[in-house]
């Protein structure tokens, strides 16, 4: 079945079964392997992308449910060759270790910060429920707060 998807601003028509999870269409059909497979039951968050600006887990999301909706993957997060502030903070704070979960982590965090520019620790705990086995949580939290503070500073100087 032909399904039209809008991914990172580009339109693609893919011929897949409608129940195929968006994850596998992104990875195997469109070659966007930055979005990761971790569990297949939407428990770990490695497959997180933005759907209309919201963070969603794609390993259980049928592709037919997102036809025509704007999808952003980790590959589309940088704009005009400039890293998103969350990506830059991830480098500045040396967050990733093995890095496998970090695409999903970055997508979840960037969606949170778009909605709440200065989240409390409780809001972070409740929203960022991705699993990282290397144990980078200490730095994830540090980097989120750094982005929030940087943002506030820019606003103050604006």
């Amino acid at each position: 079945m032909a399904i039209t998807l809008t991914v990172n601003g580009q339109t693609h028509t893919v011929d897949v079964e409608p129940d195929t999870p968006l994850l596998w269409v992104l990875r195997d059909t469109l070659g966007l392997t930055g979005t990761k497979f971790g569990c297949g039951i939407a428990a770990c968050g490695a497959c997180t992308v933005h759907l209309d600006g919201r963070a969603v887990r794609t390993c259980t999301l049928p592709v037919s449910a997102v036809e025509g909706m704007p999808i952003t993957t980790i590959e589309g997060l940088a704009q005009d060759g400039r890293l998103h502030e969350v990506q830059q903070a991830w480098i500045d704070h040396q967050v990733p270790q093995c890095g496998y979960c970090q695409s999903g982590m970055i997508m979840a965090v960037s969606a949170l910060l778009a909605r709440r520019p200065d989240p409390s620790d409780e809001q972070i705990d409740a929203t960022i429920t991705n699993i990282c086995r290397c144990g980078t949580f200490v730095r994830v939290r540090r980097a989120i707060h750094a982005v929030a503070e940087g943002g506030n500073e820019e606003e103050r100087h604006a």
Partner: peptide, 27 residues
């Protein structure tokens, strides 16, 4: 010193074992 392996880990650019692909590859 910043680690060499980190920049490609923030933009989806790094290829892990699971990301490898070849023309005509079966799954």
């Amino acid at each position: 010193k910043p680690r060499f392996d980190i920049p490609p880990k923030v933009d989806g650019g790094v290829g892990y074992g699971i990301d490898f692909t070849l023309p005509g590859m079966l799954h």
